[in-house]
Amino acid sequence: MTNTDSKAMQSGYASKKKAVNTLVYIILTVMVLIWIFPIVYLVMQSFRGEPGISTSYLIPKQWTFDNYIRLFVETDPKTGAVLPMDEMRFPYLRWILNTLLVAVLSCVISTLIILMVSYALSRLRFKSRKMLLNMGLILGMFPGFMSMAAVYAIMEIFGLKQQLIALVIVYSAGAGLGYQVAKGFFDTIPRSLDEAAKIDGATRNQIFWVIILPLSKPIIVYTALTTFIGPWTDYIFVSYFMKDNKDNWTVALGLWNMLGNQTMADWFTVFCAGAVLIAIPITILFVIMQRFYVAGVTGGAVKG
């Protein structure tokens, strides 16, 4: 092969490469457009001034910010007076606060539980370990909502019926089964660390708190964020557990109720506005989480 040949090939190679890259950019752009379309549609609907449910056009004919205002301020249809939160039909702010409370509490509890369980199953060796691993695997396969009625009855016994704390318990009690990802992560931390600490006379308790946890920042952030996001998007459980107790609804159930047969035509755009508002913080969390998700999951989920 002569020198010129190689040069020609190289320039041919470069232009081919450029063409390929352009193609990739085009494909990516098209795919992003497809993926982002429903979200853009949602945002546009939330600014729509004209009435009715979903439209066949994307850009609103009348732009308005009213839908967002209606989430927080409701007026009496007759007198025009601003209603206090207790009398609002859709007290969005209260639902946001409820959800925030439930999310924070269940996030703290579940994260703790997940870390404890996955640490024990990953780095400690004891007799029933294998059995617990298998049990955890199969228990997670029971359709969760199948036993909702029983859980509801149990809450009743504890006097927690239709209480926010019951939701916290529901969301975090099953956390023990979500150990896979975190366990996978712990598996990748070299065991020599434990051994060295043990020689220095540290107990397993100390090893857990002093050595392992500081190394586990990605998985802690990942676990905390996923458990925090859960309550914002769950509809099935909360609708079963809160029933007609509107004061204790979370935002997902509240929004869903705007779409009742009687209210949908009036409230659809407000529903969209409400959905956009909760999507914003979650989006931010997701972007932050992305990094940890990759770090946690590649060490974790894929390795069982």
Partner: peptide
Amino acid sequence: RTMFVVTAAVPQFVT
């Protein structure tokens, strides 16, 4: 990556 991840941030029942 973020553009795709954003779609997961809106609750599924909404999208």
